[in-house]
Design a protein around this nucleic acid. Sequence first.
DNA 1: CTCCGGATTCGT
DNA 2: CGAATCCGGAGT
Length: 190
Amino acid sequence: MAPRATTRKLPRSFYDRDTVVVAQELLGKHLVHVVGGVERVGRIVEVEAYLGPHDLAAHSAKGLTERTRVMFGPPGHAYLYFVYGMHWCMNVVTQAEGVASAVLLRALEPVRNVHGRTQGPALLCKAMDLDRRCNGHDLLSDDLYVASAGREAPPIRVARRPRIGVDYAGHWARRLLRFYIRGNAYVSRP
DNA sequence: CTCCGGATTCGT
DNA sequence: CGAATCCGGAGT
């Protein structure tokens, strides 16, 4: 099936840039996951940047381990992790291989075939059918990727706030590394 | 091997 | 505000 003329898959070079820039530019883009012939699509409305091993809130601050392996890999891949014994959360890996940075997807606005709530990183994964099977997945594949939203996409205003749930990270907890579309109803914590 | 705590969510 | 619920990572 030919891709829609109004949306285009983002190239590797989109992810191979400064993580804060990638985070902000992901807002308004479409996350696409094709499962069993069903194309689930959500508009990204809230994200957080995790900058690398020096960022004490980032998983990669613990160094290269089995869990963080994908974060250390090349850009444009999905890093999914399991937390609190029950939840999956999805990141997109940014910057060059060896630079362990990523952007956490925190909330989506449903576009097509999305069931249930999407306000929060774990709810987002549940609604989009994302779990351990997607960890390490190439975002230039045909079943999991991010696409531009098309020419009809409205202009957005971006809000910057501290990241959620990283109080253990000292001064890094106060950095303004959470970004969301101002006024959007699907933001998890406006 | 054991122990600890988490980039969350839900119910009280 | 505390429980749910499991696994990676750190320590013995």
